[in-house]
Amino acid sequence: MKRYIGNFTKYKFLLSELVKKDIKLKYRRSKLGIVWTLIEPILTTLVLSLVFGILKGKGDAFPVYILTGRLLFSFYSGSTKVAAKSIRSNGGMIRKVYIPKYMYPLASVLSNFVIFMISMIVLVGAMIIFRVVPTAHTILGIIPLGVLFLFSLGTSMILATVEVFFRDLEYLWGVMLTLMMYCSCIFYEPKSLGLHADILKFNPMFSIIYNFRNAVFYHKHLDGFALLYSGMVSLVLLVIGIYVFYKKQDEFILNI
């Protein structure tokens, strides 16, 4: 254990360099740069609010409802997609020099998390516009975000490992994500499905978004079951992820 920590501190600088690189390069090519992080969710939320708002005749703050779901989900899908490919796309380096390999999926999740945090500005803006006034409950929103980070990291470690051996996982995961998106009540409310929210809570992504909405949008206490369940799933995924990654990482080089 001590050896692992020592190794981590030695390569801490590498981790920060990798995160920095991901963020820098993502926006280097576009003229608007980091502003895209803000424009993109605004535009999609606008479209979704128009379509579903007109269809259903929702209340005034519906865009805030959509944003809370959409921002969280796009962090999850973005980070897991990039992390899944991270070992393979950095194969050139892994074949030449020794580096702790978990740095790559970890850096992918971290850099996406930073971008996610920046895009939260949009949510703040929308809350001001639609007069969703923050209360003491709003601060509790940090808890589901922490769970979401662990959930993404756990998923990413598993995906990064499997992707090395099976390249077509990328497409399968894309399909999985779509399914997950429709089961997470991002642009509709649970009751419009005719379903009780309790069933949907078994989808950890829904549980996380649900609790985030409870804190930020409805100004309620967090749902105990949803929090416990999503937390447990995230921890189990993370343990499995770390286990399979360490078990298989010496074979990576033979397959990339």
Binding site: F13, E17, L18, K21, K24, R29, M93, V97, I99
Partner: peptide
């Protein structure tokens, strides 16, 4: 082999050094 092509030489010094 570990250079990032979109990075400048200066940035790559830090990245490659970290690697």
């Amino acid at each position: 082999a570990g250079f990032d092509k979109q990075y400048t030489g200066a940035e790559n010094i830090y990245l490659y050094g970290a690697l």
